[in-house]
Design a protein around this nucleic acid. Structure first.
Length: 499
RNA sequence: GAGCCGGUAGCUCAGCCUGGUAGAGCAACGGACUUUUAAUCCGUGGGUCGCGGGUUCGAAUCCCGCCCGGCUCACCA
């Protein structure tokens, strides 16, 4: 049962009426819906939609529509999962209670109702209300019922309004949650152990990016918010975990656009005794499993493009596709730096003189190749100078055993056979330090503690990172990363006094 | 950081080009209505036109600066 209504408070509220809404003072109702008895709107629809048969139900939610007709009224109450119609008749609840409802309850309020299910003349499953309670008052008007809320700034800054008003938005975030839970299920069933590694790290390494810096007062040292969990997860492989994964936030102190948010969610997983070829197959399995579980189909539409997630995916090597798109071969990119620089300027790449050799190659690839990879495509065998943590290719000293998977023109997966030779790893870090001295701000940091771990022996291992936000974008057909992050990074609104 | 676009009632928008004291729908408020669902019908109230400055007799409208947001580029796996 609902806890008892307190008539004195009702009167108080009714007496003050709309004044209470303006003064911002409100006698809160302490009525509660007792635990375990209220059922969700979604479960009622699921259970009784075919046959309501006067089932007694008790539900709570936000009143989002209201149609009053004198001696009866209709409305809908809603939560993130769905909405259900309620029907209130004067001759069912009594004259007093009916009057109370119309006088104290407005669209936007959180209410609880109790009643029996029936179907209206138009066939909609509806609760014929016998008892109701105001659970929380909404002091502000809700966004418009028909057009919802469109102002993107309001949608991001006050996401709760977006969620109340826009069904599509609710769907996206529910799908996001499902995607993450299906990924966990997939990995757990295959023997992976989920772990948590430090977000605050003394060395920001494991990726090429600018970190956020903070300070620990007690340890009296600077710490960095992680740009990647990679080096810690590999330490766990050294420690004997054969299969580990972590899903969590990474932080990069860089620009904001439709595919970048300063904090974003990554899945990283590592498997001992696998190589990058095993990971390609595993990635195909994972993505087709996701498509089946989430969408029930291998075919998706992303921003107008039909994308087929049925394995196997196209595999093409880094320099093969570069040659296809630019006519220049690996030799040109890797061995003839001066000619490359000249040519890069000719094709319109900016700030070439400020870039390192590696960076120019990376830029050229982004410019000529990335956006065109609509169907799932593994780009394999990257140049070594772009991949300081990946193992040298078994057939080519210039390359590493690495792949990235592109879908819808976006990089979604990055993976490689891990470099497990501590001597070579130190050399690669030193190479990065040189790049840093030459002005590459994103070059990777030396991590001596990680090298020490490698010196104890890391088994041959393959590791992979999946950008969860971008994956959600593709599976929900959204054009901007902000549409799949509940509270995307926004500029602080300046205090008017300080302007 | 650059270019383009936007900011008008609680929400969605019109008005701006061509300067003359701000408008619609929904929401709110009052009334009618016992199967409605963008309910309907009658009536009422509601504005720092993002902020600041300039031009002008007069600025939502023209000009300049700033703030916030979006897109594209740059940056960035």
């Amino acid at each position: 049962m609902f806890s008892s209504w307190e008539p004195e408070r009702d009167k108080e509220y009714i007496l003050e009426g709309s004044l209470i809404r303006k003064d911002g003072k409100l006698a809160l109702f302490d009525a509660v819906v007792s635990e375990g008895e209220t059922v969700s709107i979604a479960s009622i629809k699921e259970k009784y939609d075919f046959d309501p048969k006067d089932e007694k139900v008790k539900i709570a939610g936000r009143l989002v529509t209201l149609r009053q007709m004198g001696k009866a009224l209709f409305g809908h109450i809603q939560d993130v999962w769905g909405r259900i119609q309620i029907y209130l008749r004067k001759d069912t609840v009594g004259e007093e209670r009916y009057k109370e409802f119309t006088e104290i309850i407005d669209v936007g309020d959180i209410i609880g109702v109790e009643g029996t299910l029936f179907r209206t003349n138009t066939g909609e499953l509806t609760v014929n209300v016998t008892e109701f309670v105001l659970l929380s008052k909404c002091l502000n008007p809700l966004p418009e019922k028909w057009h919802g809320i469109k102002d993107v700034e309001v949608r991001y800054r006050q996401r709760y309004l977006d969620l109340i008003a826009n069904e599509e938005v609710r769907r996206i975030f529910i799908t996001r949650s499902k995607i993450i839970s299906v990924i966990r299920k997939f990995l757990d069933e295959r023997g992976f152990v989920e772990v948590e590694t430090p977000v605050l790290q003394p060395v920001a390494s494991g990726a090429t990016a600018k970190p956020f810096v903070t300070y620990h007062n007690y340890l009296e040292s600077e710490l960095y918010l992680r740009i990647a969990p990679e080096l810690y997860l590999k330490r766990l492989i050294v420690g004997g975990f054969p299969k580990v994964y972590e899903i969590g936030k990474n932080f990069r102190n860089e620009g904001v656009d439709t595919t970048h948010n300063p904090e974003f969610t990554m899945l990283e997983f590592y498997v001992a005794y696998w190589d990058y070829k095993d990971l390609m197959e595993f990635t195909e399995e994972l993505l087709s499993f996701l498509a089946r579980e989430i969408l029930g189909s291998m075919k998706i539409t992303y921003q107008g493009n039909e994308i087929d997630l049925t394995p196997p995916y196209r595999k093409v090597s880094y320099f093969e596709i570069l040659k296809e798109k630019t006519g220049k071969d690996k030799e040109f990119f890797l061995k003839r730096e001066n000619e490359l620089r000249k040519w890069a300027k000719e094709v319109g790449l900016q700030k070439v003189d400020e870039m390192t050799h590696a960076k120019i190659i990376d830029k050229i690839f982004e410019h000529f190749v990335e956006g065109e990879l609509i169907q799932p495509t593994f780009i394999t065998d990257f140049p070594k100078i772009l991949s300081p943590l990946a193992k040298t290719h078994r057939n080519d000293e210039d390359l590493v055993e690495r792949f990235e998977l592109f879908i819808g023109g976006k990089e979604v997966v990055n993976a490689y056979t891990e470099l497990n030779d501590p001597v070579e790893q130190r050399e690669r870090f030193l190479q990065q330090l040189k790049e840093k001295e030459r002005g590459d701000e994103e070059a990777m940091e030396m991590d001596e503690d990680f090298i020490k771990a490698l010196e104890f022996g890391m088994p041959p291992t393959a590791g992979e990172g999946i950008g969860i936000d971008r994956l959600v974008m593709i599976l929900t057909d959204t054009p901007s990363i902000r549409e799949v992050i509940l509270f995307p990074a926004m500029r602080k609104i300046k205090d008017e006094v300080n302007i």
